[in-house]
Amino acid sequence: MPEQLIFATEVALNGLMTGVLYSLVALGFVLIFKASGIFNYSQGVLALFAALTLVGFQDGQVPFSHLINATFGTEIHGFGFELPAIIAIVLTLGVMVLLAILIEKLVLKHLVNQEPIILFMATIGLAYFLEGLGDIMWGSDIKNLDVGLPQGISPVIDTVTYEWFGYGFFIDKLDIVATVIAAILVISLTLFSQYSKQGRALRAVADDHQAALSVGVSLRFIWVLVWSIAGLVALVAGIMWGTKSGVQFSLSLIALKALPVLMLGGFTSIPGAIVGGLIIGVGEKLFEFTVGPMVGGATENWFAYVLALVFLVFRPQGLFGEKIIERV
């Protein structure tokens, strides 16, 4: 293999993990959009909030400790114990479900039958609220997240590729694990939606609200369910991102990258979200590697948007998208 191609392959593989993250955030978007026609701007913040909460539980942080200390002059910081990762994850999932219930009860319920743009604005508000809430509850410092996922360069891949190509690939074990976990998540979600009672109800709601009601499906239950699933997907994305680069507020910015992913993949297509995320994740790394040096670098900031724009011109419904469905 020529040297350049080998380098390019390595770069592409490194972009895969970023792509998986974009895919996951986009997947959360698509799920909510399909089931309720809501464009959920807060999906990225949801991932941030989940990661913050997870670290908080793991480290035994007292929520709102800054606020409590400032108000009462106390010096509380932690409970003084740490929780095992698995328990912290389960607790965080509980929080995400609770959040879904609250979002439905306090926000969505009151906006039934409103214009999509109003619901969209409500989710912008939600995004800012959650970001602020995460800050007040858990503090704004960058936190380390370690739930025991393997990390570091994989020596096996290094050796094997060295033997094959005469060049050892540097691949982070975390990238591989993240990809596998994301694949398992997507497969489970697919099985769930195809074969479970709730999955069937979910597909019914995504297809036609009126018809779904007539076969005994509660829209409000489905909305809680779909926001809970979006919360689960956000948690998985938050764990991966947090493990890789620490839990920090810039995490919510992946939401912005999910937008070009959605333009590419289509707003209503689950495979589209996944393929779109991978294309952009890998594409922006490869572009930076090949074209970057010629234009002074930092192409990753704009590549995704330009690619999405090109797509908008030639295929507005995205790779796999259907026409946007009218809400009832």
Partner: peptide
Amino acid sequence: MMTGRLTHMKSGM
């Protein structure tokens, strides 16, 4: 037609 069976489906998640 299977969605018509939803009200009769028991198994929870």
